Simulated scan of single mutants.
Amino acid sequence: MGYCLSVDGGGTKIIAVLFDHDWNCLAVGRSGAINPNFTRLESVAANMEACIRECLKEHPHITLGAVYAAMPGPIDLLAEVIGKYAKVGEMHAFSEGYMCLLAGIQHRRGIVALAGTGSGIFGVREESQTHLGGWGSHLGDEGSGYDIGRQGMMAAIQSFEGRGPVTMLQELIMQEWQLKLMGDIISVIYGTSDTREVISSCSLLVSKAAMSGDAVAQGIFAAAGQSLAVQVCALMNRDAFDEQTWAMAAGSVWKGHPLMFTRFREVIREKHPKTVAAMPLFEPVMGGVVHEAMRMGEGDPLDGPMLQRLKSSFEAFLYQPKDI
Rank of each mutant, 00 (worst) to 15 (best):
Y3S: 10
C4N: 05
D8W: 09
D8A: 08
G10M: 02
T12R: 06
L18A: 10
R30T: 15
P36H: 11
P36N: 06
R40C: 13
V44T: 04
M48F: 14
M48H: 04
E49Q: 11
E49I: 07
R53S: 10
R53P: 01
P60F: 00
L64S: 02
Y68V: 02
P72T: 08
G73P: 05
D76L: 13
I82K: 04
A86N: 11
V88D: 05
G89H: 10
M91K: 15
F94G: 02
E96V: 02
M99T: 06
M99V: 10
L101F: 10
L102M: 13
R108I: 07
A113P: 10
G116N: 08
S119Y: 04
S119A: 15
G120A: 15
V124H: 06
S128M: 14
Q129W: 03
S137F: 15
E142R: 12
G143S: 13
D147M: 07
G149R: 01
G149W: 04
A155V: 11
Q158V: 01
Q158H: 14
F160C: 11
G162E: 09
R163S: 13
G164T: 12
V166A: 14
T167Q: 03
L169D: 00
I173R: 02
W177K: 08
K180F: 08
K180Y: 12
L181E: 12
I189W: 05
G191E: 03
V198D: 02
I199S: 01
S201F: 06
C202A: 11
S203N: 13
L205S: 01
V206N: 01
M211V: 09
S212T: 02
D214T: 03
A215C: 08
Q218G: 12
G219H: 02
I220F: 03
F221I: 10
A222T: 11
A223T: 03
A224N: 05
L228F: 05
V232I: 15
C233R: 13
C233T: 12
A234H: 09
F241Y: 15
W246V: 10
M248G: 00
W254L: 03
G256R: 01
L259C: 04
R265E: 15
E266A: 07
R269Q: 15
K274F: 13
T275I: 04
T275V: 06
V276P: 01
L281E: 05
V290E: 00
E292M: 12
E292W: 14
A293L: 04
P301S: 03
P305G: 01
L307C: 03
R309D: 10
K311M: 15
F314H: 06
A316V: 06
Q320V: 11
D323C: 04
I324T: 13
I324Q: 15
